[in-house]
Amino acid sequence: MNSVVCIKRVPETAEATLKIDPANRKLEVDNLVFGINEADNYALEQALLLEEEFGGEVIVVSVGPPETDEIIRMALAKGAGRAIRISPENLSELDPYSIAKLIAHELEDEEYDLIFTGCQASDDGFSQVGVALAELLGIQHLSMAVKMETEEESATVNRELEGGLMAQYKLNFPAVITIQTGLNEPRYASILGIKRAGSKEIRVVEPGSWNEKMVELNKLSFPPPGKMAEIFQGSPAETAEKVCEVLKTKGLL
């Protein structure tokens, strides 16, 4: 079983101090640490588990700058066979459609049963590349998979819906599945493994300037401070009492 996994290098923003560049179009990244997008890490693990069970090859694809090789090498260390990095000149201007188009173009000559992506990128939150990619390739897709049972030519996939509902689908290959976090337990890429993976192929594609986009980012800004949070004052016992009160009135206790 051959799988393609699309991964993205994203900044870790949870605790970091974020700054927007003067042109209001992107984050200043100098002080940020980058890693593989969390959901993509689960997508990669799913592909590796299938390769362990059914054999075949895992191909990693990423659209990003040369620094993306850091996360690509980790994926290769974990067991992916080879990788394709697509680095257009105007990277920061791409939208999900143009990214999907770039990937679809590179996959034309590849043979695959499944294409995995994470269900959402933690930086721009579009959730669209996987779905757009399926449309462009003319194959089926399922998004937000939380469980997956795979056979030789098909898979049964669960999607979690609002209110705790679970929907189960069966789909035949080839297909695109976008993976939700928590579907498996991603493995660790050891430093020695990453060094050894240096000998695996990363094919670099440089399509120059890529102008296929459908939407354009106008502006990036911080939301104005809201009044959504109430900070309780007082001793731990007093504040705990207030929290209990709120939870009770909301029917949570």
Partner: peptide
Amino acid sequence: VERGKIDPAARDALESILKH
């Protein structure tokens, strides 16, 4: 560790050391 299949908490601690 080389095979990558370690306790998720150990994995997260090690990845954090590499990154942060």
